[in-house]
Design a binder for these strands. Structure first.
Lengths: 233, 233
DNA sequence: TTTTGCAAAATTGCATTCAAATTTGGGATT
DNA sequence: AATCCCAAATTTGAATGCAATTTTGCAAAA
């Protein structure tokens, strides 16, 4: 039964393809899930997604195996795949791991950061502080994310960057939900932590920065879990 | 052309299978590569491995995609897969990442370790010290590995344990090569570092332990890279 | 002897097929 | 009406098929 085009031509792109179908599907599917198109714990409709993406089951299934090893998806033998739903315990573990990544990034950043790069981080911090004073939650969180990304980038460790980005994607939905729920109690505390981060970075104090970043993520995790518990009550 | 059994029966296991063919192949292939059956940078003969494992190409190719996302294998579009060969720069990055994992494990272990668990680690340390005094390199390295594994286990973070194990597997070949080459210069230093590790763990000093573990891995990485450079001269 | 061209062979990427497992939807029994 | 049973339909996991790309082998030209 072949009712739709089996070969999806891409007439607009007559030049060389460069990326394999597999890697393209992998990214598309990861985004599709991370963006919340399938509910937490929901079945992943294999055949339907194939039609949506205009591909056969083989590359889609390859992508599912990779996402399962990433922990974004759960494979149930003979019963298909579902979007992994994170328990409070899972969330705590994953935030601790993220804390480990950020602590390492901070450590490495202390070794490599140039004065110019420090100025960039400082300027992001100043901007973020402005959003905090103006109570502009949306821009605050965006700038906050940029600071963390910047430190990762400055670490210069591509293996670390890849791992952290992948984990960050898995936590994106959770993190966002908490941002919306935050009643402001955590906000002031987070800003103070960021000041400590800047200070440790200025002093190139790797041990101090690692410690602060880990505990910063720990506190964020606790805030996320509080809002989670509230949501389920 | 089907000259070999297409279905690999497992008569010894008449009970339920529990594991899918995919995950079984994944583990077998990972071991196969990690154990050095294919040289660094060598092509991975898809069809031949299928015959070796008695499976078709589909599950093998699924495993290859997963191992590629793990960084153990490199996929070259239309030109197959090869065992990723690690440059000195790659090795440095990966050891730093491993240092991040171990630092995090140490941090978490400080929070959770029981007196009984501490005694276990201490006894491993004592045993390792004995191997050091007796100049028994083989048993020294085995016990050393057991200590690091034990700290990871005590951390109790399953996501961390999975990530660290996977990275550790990728580095296994490199680590082993360096162990053989070590001229003893590094050995005494490593033993002293282990004493510091035990001490920080006894004091449940998370920041100190994280720092020591990171630098311990850094130093190991430097030793590995020295022996690498010697090998290529 | 080395380089070039090109057709045959092999390999790859993806689609399709097929058998086995699971789910579904009545109908028979209580 | 509720429960159980079982056959049909669907879905899954893995094998196979097929077109496109790459590699190989070899003969002709420089």
């Amino acid at each position: 039964m072949v009712e739709f085009a089996t070969q999806v031509e891409n007439p607009a792109e007559s030049g060389q393809q460069e990326t394999s179908l597999h890697s393209e599907v992998l990214e598309r599917l990861r985004d599709y899930i991370v963006e919340g198109n399938i509910p937490e714990g929901g079945r992943i409709p294999e055949r339907q997604l194939c039609e949506t993406f205009g591909i056969s089951r083989t590359p889609l299934r390859e992508a599912l195996k990779v996402l399962a090893s990433d922990g974004l998806v759960e494979l149930m033998p003979n019963r298909g795949a579902r979007v992994r739903s994170l328990s409070a315990h899972d969330i705590k573990e994953l935030f601790d791991l993220m804390g480990g990544f950020e602590a390492l990034a901070g450590r490495l950043a202390c070794e490599r950061i140039t004065e110019e790069q420090f100025e960039e981080v400082l300027s992001l911090h100043t901007e973020m502080y402005g959003h905090y004073l103006r109570d502009d939650r949306h821009h605050y969180f965006r700038t906050n994310q940029l600071i963390h990304d910047k430190i990762l980038e400055i670490s210069g460790n591509s293996a670390l960057i890849r791992s952290a980005r992948s984990l960050s994607a898995s936590l994106r939905r959770v993190r966002y939900a908490a941002n919306l729920d935050d009643k402001g109690l955590r906000w002031a505390e987070a800003v103070r932590e960021h000041e400590q981060i800047i200070d440790a970075l200025r002093r190139r104090d790797a041990d101090a920065l690692a410690s602060i970043l880990f505990h910063h993520l720990r506190n964020k995790s606790a805030a996320v879990l509080r809002s989670y518990e509230e949501a389920y009550r």
